[in-house]
Design a protein around this nucleic acid. Structure first.
Length: 878
RNA sequence: GGGAGCAUAGCUCAGCUGGUUCAGAGCACCUGCCUUACAAGCAGGGGGUCACAGGUUCGAACCCUGUUGCUCCCA
């Protein structure tokens, strides 16, 4: 069979993925094996795959594939998140394109459109994950608005309400006037914006021409002013105590008040107070019992309470009111100013602080145990440094605003009675029952009750994810939840440590009395070469599917993982994927080599091959131990790098060269079988990182039955490691390199065989690898000698001297110079060792082992110096 | 303003409890090679005052203090 020289992943990847699906290898049901569970951080149902997903899901697939190959019952449970704000925004935009306004639809009609949209576009991202090779149990795919998931959310809401943990409150919230919903603080992005600082003059009431000047960036909000404030110790304003001033244009009389909150250095030292539209002003308003005048409609236009500009947009009004203030002489001056303005993460609209009635979940009691399990390492964070960040947040946690003014999401199960009382219940029927009891009015009907219009924050469903995907809220004792929970590893981004990770821990402790996962692996952010976060708006994110088409899924996976230790940002560059692809090709060509060998059963195994096989066996064991250790520490990049070097350097560059038969010569059976065995073990080691090529090669290396797959093979076990053999090889490898260097320096082509003479002085050289040195160095004869031969080029490995006789063509001066240089270095080295040993305090204080090492260094250096001196002497005589 | 983290080769990062060639890896770079698996390759090579300044110690990239610079979180 002809194998092409370049590995072409297209076709191969689709073929195997389909095969795995057909064979149900991703499927997991509870059995007697140890479970290993990962639940996917559900991507937004509206989403398309971006580089962050690629990294995150590659890591999950590596972990789950490895667990499967360790004989565990591995489940990777996929799904999507309904992402209320983002999805609703998309559906609204889509409807608008069709000329349909959301406002013209009933809630039911809108939801019908939303579901249609979800059915049509919702699965895209999961299909994309398949291209990456994700080994999810697709039969278990969940969506946060699935009936069972929806009901779980409602159950939890009712339960927490009954426990007294959920309450309604008037709060200043971050209002998104475009999405028409409140946002959590975390959904607000602050950006520096160039704006103006307006100095406005307010007339003091009852005076002819006395004025107070305040500074503001938001002149339109003066219509909601209910006080003007100065610092109580500010001499400039003390005379105004108890007086009142008039709001410009509308001439409303408002009091002058004093509060220490005021920064005397800022602006004029005098400040307008608008409790409805600024969080700080709101608090001052509460303290001073000021009136609160909300001048904005929900969509950011002014309402009738503003008295002026009614129905006009806030930014339009800003321009107009400045003109009007100017023409009425109320503007003292206007300065350029840079301030931080909050924008909606979802709609990029300027956030309006707004007072509104919202639902809140009390956090304090839930946060304490959730902090504890992380601090005492019941849950491990990788890397650990995020424990600090986590603690800081948990110790300063605020109540969670869980209501959103949207339709797409779980509707809050609260019903209002005609008299304004409310009941919370799982169903309208139960609500009615409660309402009758509460009001004492048995004739109340469902029609008399009005359900709350709001839905719950998306995170209020995601925080149940590890439980609700197994239906563990509704049926706490079902087989799945008992078997799969707590899950093992959670792989997510540090940005949502609090939104999501912390809250899942709280929910787990509250509803399972157990942690939701044992390890949290925090990935970095994928950035572009300039260090910018990849984003759609910057257009700096490559399309992952294009990358897969170009480099193969295996190549991209390797590229993503090579330089991304846990918690570190990943500066992404296509060349990383190129490296991954090149690695695939390297493996592929190793296969071509091995498959090209013709076996001759009559052949004896040559000496060079038998020692090579022994060596690689040990090297493989050593590397496997290192790889296991890296996995245990969640150092996936290093596990991959160790495997990469094992394959490329040790297997391809050394082992295969060592055992390779001469051109067009056959190979003995023992070596061939050993080589295929090694190759196959290497494929199993690599499989979690590169699932496709390893499966393809697994089937090409040997004839295997149709239903066999590397996916369900076990990871190889690491045997014992013979250190002596490994260091023997190390020395031999150095000798080979030495010979190559001599060849290069002396211009001796490789095809010319040369003689090698070895002078051993301390008996350390066993000669076990001599056949290998002979093969790789193209040595015609190896001879052990007692004396340095006449004209020869030489080098040393440890205390072993190697000589290549050169006849006449030797440059004595060059040789001498080389030796002298080395002698000088070794003497310097010995000096530093002697200095240390001569230090009385070192010898008496340092650990005995350390001192002993220094003595050994001393004697080694002395031997070496003696040898070098002898050689130099020999050269001088020649 | 409060808190946290980081600073090691051109880039991205390892470096565990201070002590073996501990100053490393990969990539990039330089020099030879189209050698019969692979130029997506082979062989060889150069490159760092471990941010700076002190301190502790027989011994510091590692521990302590300060300085500078960068990043993130909260206000």
């Amino acid at each position: 069979m002809e194998i092409p020289a370049k590995y072409d992943p297209s076709g191969i990847e689709d073929k195997w993925y389909q095969n795995w699906l057909n064979k149900k290898y991703f499927r997991s049901v509870p059995d007697e094996r140890e479970p290993f569970t990962i639940v996917i951080p559900p991507p937004n149902v509206t989403g398309v795959l971006h580089m962050g997903h690629m990294l995150n899901n590659t890591i999950q697939d590596v972990l789950v594939r490895r667990a499967r190959m360790l004989g565990k019952n591995a489940l990777w449970l996929p799904g999507t998140d309904h992402a209320s704000i983002a999805t609703e925004a998309k559906v609204v935009a889509k409807l608008k394109e069709q000329g349909i306004e959301k406002a013209s639809l009933t809630r039911e009609e809108f939801l019908k459109h939303a579901w249609e949209w979800k059915e049509k576009h919702g699965g895209i991202i999961l299909e994309q994950l398949k291209k990456l090779g994700a080994s999810c149990d697709w039969d278990r795919t969940k969506f946060t608005m699935d009936e069972s998931m929806y009901e779980s959310v409602i159950d939890v809401f009712v339960d927490l309400y009954n426990k007294g943990l959920i309450y309604r409150g008037v709060r200043m919230v971050n209002w998104d006037p475009k999405a028409l919903t409140a946002l959590s603080d975390e959904e607000v992005i602050y950006k520096e914006v160039k704006s103006k600082l307006y100095y406005l003059r307010y007339k003091v009431e009852g005076t002819a021409d006395e004025w107070v000047t305040i500074a503001t960036t938001r002149p339109e909000t003066i219509l909601g002013d209910t006080a003007v404030c100065y610092h109580p110790e500010d001499e400039r304003f003390k005379h105004l105590a108890g007086k009142r001033v008039l709001v410009p244009l509308i001439k409303r009389s408002i009091p002058m008040i004093a509060a220490a909150y005021v920064d005397r250095e800022f602006g004029t030292g005098c400040l307008k107070i608008t409790p409805a539209h600024d969080i700080n002003d709101y608090h001052i308003g509460l303290k001073h019992k000021l009136e609160t005048i909300d001048i904005f409609n929900d969509n950011g236009t002014l309402n009738e309470k503003a008295l002026l500009y009614i129905g006009q947009d806030r930014f339009e009004v800003r321009k107009k009111i400045v003109e009007d203030l100017l023409s009425h002489g109320h503007v003292e001056k206007i300065e350029d100013y840079v301030n931080n303005v909050g924008f909606s993460e979802r709609t990029d609209e300027v956030i309006e602080p707004k007072l509104s009635v919202q639902w809140f979940l009390k956090m304090a009691d839930m946060a304490a145990p959730a902090l504890e399990v992380v601090m005492n390492d019941t849950i491990h964070f990788h890397p650990e440094k995020f424990k600090n960040t986590y603690r800081h947040w948990m110790e300063n946690v605020r109540d969670w605003c869980i209501s959103r003014q949207l339709w797409w999401g779980q509707r809050i199960p609260a019903w209002y009675l005609p008299d304004g009382d409310l009941v919370v219940a799982k169903t309208p029927e139960l609500a009615l029952e409660q309402a009758r009891k509460l009001s004492g009015n048995e004739s109340l009907q469902l029609n008399d009750l009005k359900q709350d219009e709001d839905v719950l924050d998306t995170w209020f469903s995601s925080w149940l994810w590890p439980i609700s995907v197994f239906d563990g809220i509704r049926h706490p004792d079902n087989e799945d939840i008992r078997y799969y929970y707590p899950t093992n590893d959670l792989i997510t981004a540090p940005e949502i440590l609090f939104f999501w990770v912390a809250r899942m821990i709280m929910a787990g402790l509250e509803y399972r009395n157990d942690i939701p996962f044992k390890n949290v692996y925090l990935t970095g952010i994928v950035r572009d070469k300039l260090g910018r976060k990849m984003s759609k708006s910057l257009g700096n994110s490559p399309d992952p599917l294009d990358l897969i088409a170009k480099f193969g899924a295996d190549g991209v996976r390797v590229g993503m993982l090579l330089t991304s230790p846990a918690g570190n940002d990943l500066p992404f560059d296509e060349s990383l994927c190129e490296q991954g692809r090149n690695f695939s090709n390297k493996i592929w060509n190793a296969l071509r080599l091995v498959k090209g060998w013709q076996e001759d059963a009559r052949l004896e195994q040559p000496a060079y091959a038998s020692i090579s096989v022994k060596w690689f066996e040990n090297r493989l064991n050593e590397a496997m131990l290192q790889i296991n250790d890296h996995y245990d520490k969640y150092r996936l990049s290093e596990a991959l790098m160790t495997a990469y070097k094992l394959v490329w350097d040790d297997f391809c560059s050394w082992y295969l060269e060592m055992v390779k038969p001469a051109y067009q010569q056959p190979i003995d059976a023992a070596t061939l079988n050993a080589s295929i065995g090694f190759f196959e073990k290497l494929m199993r080691l690599l499989h979690p990182f590169m699932p496709f090529i390893t499966e393809e090669i697994w089937h090409l290396l040997e004839d295997r039955p149709e239903d066999e797959s590397i996916m369900v093979a076990l990871q190889p076990d690491a045997g014992n490691v013979d250190e002596t053999l490994l260091s023997g090889f190390q020395a031999a490898a150095e000798a080979v390199i030495g010979i190559r260097n001599v060849r290069k320096e002396k211009n001796i082509p490789f095809k010319d065989a040369i003689e090698l003479k070895i002078r051993v002085t301390d008996g350390s050289e066993s000669g076990a690898f001599d056949p290998v040195i002979g093969k790789l160095g193209n040595i015609s004869s190896i001879e052990y000698v007692a004396e340095k031969p006449g004209t020869a080029a030489g080098f040393m490995v440890k205390a072993c001297e190697y000589y290549i006789p050169l006849g006449d063509g030797i440059d004595l001066d060059a040789e001498r110079e080389k030796l002298e240089k080395e002698l000088e270095y070794t003497r310097g080295f010995l000096d530093s060792v002697m200095k240390k040993l001569g230090n009385e305090r070192f010898v008496s204080n340092a650990k005995p082992e350390v001192v002993e090492v220094e003595y050994r260094k001393k004697s080694d250096a002395e031997t070496r110096i003696r040898l070098l001196e002898e050689q130099l002497q020999g050269l001088k005589q020649a």
